[in-house]
């Protein structure tokens, strides 16, 4: 049986919250869809850090399983997002999320 060395879980949760807020700032602020996708990855990783922190805090492996599932979903999201970016680039559409309003009703 091993105890948790170093900082308490709340420190990890603070880092996770800051990461999530940083990613949200990037998603809202940036106009390049590639950087929006990168910021989305930061948000997902902030969530993953909180999941793994709580998993360690409660001594339950379910949080790590959830984090691995989130990782798979993030990989899928990157595949679809980058496919869309490449398709838009082939159609010579400006890569600017403020101008991608063709589907607006």
């Amino acid at each position: 049986m091993t105890a948790l060395l170093g900082p308490e879980i709340s420190w990890y949760l603070a880092v996770s919250g800051f990461l999530f807020a940083t990613g949200a700032l990037g998603v809202l602020l940036r106009r390049n869809p590639l950087i929006v996708l990168l910021s989305l990855e930061i948000m997902l990783n902030g969530g993953n850090l909180a999941l793994i922190g709580f998993s360690r805090n409660l001594g339950d492996g379910g949080g790590q399983i959830f984090a691995l599932a989130v990782m798979a979903v993030a990989a899928s999201e990157v595949v679809v997002g980058l496919g869309l970016v490449v398709a838009l680039n082939r159609k010579r559409v400006t890569l600017d999320v403020d101008r991608l309003n063709t589907l607006r009703g």
Binding site: M1, T2, A3, L4, E8, I9, S10, L13, A14, G17, F18, F20, A21, T22, A24, L25, L28, F54, R56, N57, L58, G59
Partner: peptide, 27 residues
């Protein structure tokens, strides 16, 4: 909006989970 999200996360975790965060289980 990002600042509001950060405040919200800190407040919710502080209110709901602060009781058992100080003591982590031995694994």
């Amino acid at each position: 909006a990002a600042g509001a999200l950060l405040v919200e996360i800190v407040v919710v975790i502080g209110l709901k989970a602060s009781g058992h965060l100080a003591h982590s289980e031995h694994v």
